[in-house]
Design a protein around this nucleic acid. Sequence first.
DNA 1: TCTTTTATGGTACAACCATACCATCTTGGT
DNA 2: ACCAAGATGGTATGGTTGTACCATAAAAGA
Lengths: 201, 201
Amino acid sequence: MPKLVDHEERRAQIIDALLRVAADTGLHAVTMRSVAVEAGISVRLVQYYFDTKEQLLLAALDRLAARMGERVRDRVRRAGSSPAPRDIVEAVLLEAVPTDEESRTFHLVYTEYAVLSVTDPALGGRPFLAAPDEMEEFLVAQLTTAQRAGDADPELDARQEAVVLLAVSAGLGLSVLLGQRTAGDAAAVLHYHLGRLFPSR
Amino acid sequence: MPKLVDHEERRAQIIDALLRVAADTGLHAVTMRSVAVEAGISVRLVQYYFDTKEQLLLAALDRLAARMGERVRDRVRRAGSSPAPRDIVEAVLLEAVPTDEESRTFHLVYTEYAVLSVTDPALGGRPFLAAPDEMEEFLVAQLTTAQRAGDADPELDARQEAVVLLAVSAGLGLSVLLGQRTAGDAAAVLHYHLGRLFPSR
DNA sequence: TCTTTTATGGTACAACCATACCATCTTGGT
DNA sequence: ACCAAGATGGTATGGTTGTACCATAAAAGA
């Protein structure tokens, strides 16, 4: 065997190029050529590591979803020393608001994929379903914990409130992406809403 | 002068064809040819009524935004006989949840445009800004009215709550579009949340 | 009836796209 | 030292897209 190239590393490098292209010229501008140019390699190589464009797009989506999962888990872990449900919930939901550049890229491209999946059958079953469901269960658990601990009104319907929380963070994140609101404003609104859910005492 | 053709009607017919194509094969599948086929006319005619593709897309976006404005105003008018702010707010926000097929088409295509506008400079300034701002002011007004009438907790920050409402309805609408939730569920969640904002007594 | 304007069809063209194919280095094993 | 296999470059091909161009039918005004 010849040259020794780490395939996974190469693939990651190409996918990162794709994400950069998608983030600043749109998912529709992602072509074999544009990705190759952005990655600084030849088109042939993109073909070599991802046989077809569809496979390239699917691989990029997988990486995106995995990376976003990591980011959320990191947030939970970092806020995990103080086990107050309110802090955990706020940390997790804040991940939906694009603050740093990486976050913005991820959410923009992810949203582009999500919208595309509505009409493109090839993206049909993808992780657009699983992740939100997990998240909903997680939020329900946190809310009921808080209720039992007396940190949240026991009259609340935890499941409905969880769905509201998910919708709020998605809506705020989208408005930030569209440039209607700054990330700071969105974070403040989220903070306010959580303040109503978890009365300080 | 010859044949007598109502230009506006023709243009509307073509734009409707575009919306149908965009709604069931995606905005990326909107091409001069696909629109012409869907409208049952020749490509040349599409060129004739909209000189360039960009102008066609912009005209379609304008029509879309206008039509959505109409729908919201209709809702307000229909719920307007009983002037309870809560009913008005619920009616308006429910418009963001795609129930009937026309509503689904509109919101899907509108969302596709909105996401596209992030990366496409030609869609830069468009109505993605104006409409939400108007809406925010409207909601603030309704909330403060309700507070003065004793129908809502005067402790609430009307502006923050308005932003939350906007985010909730956008988030719920998106989740319905993505097939994560039914329109009925989304409406129920919205109803629940409004129930918390406007205590029955 | 003739002409001028409008509405339409068809086609050609240059650019771009995904992909298939052919060739050429490079290097690990023998 | 050689060779087989992996890694890469270049190019050809068939299809699609937006748009420009050339034609013609139709009908309103003279």
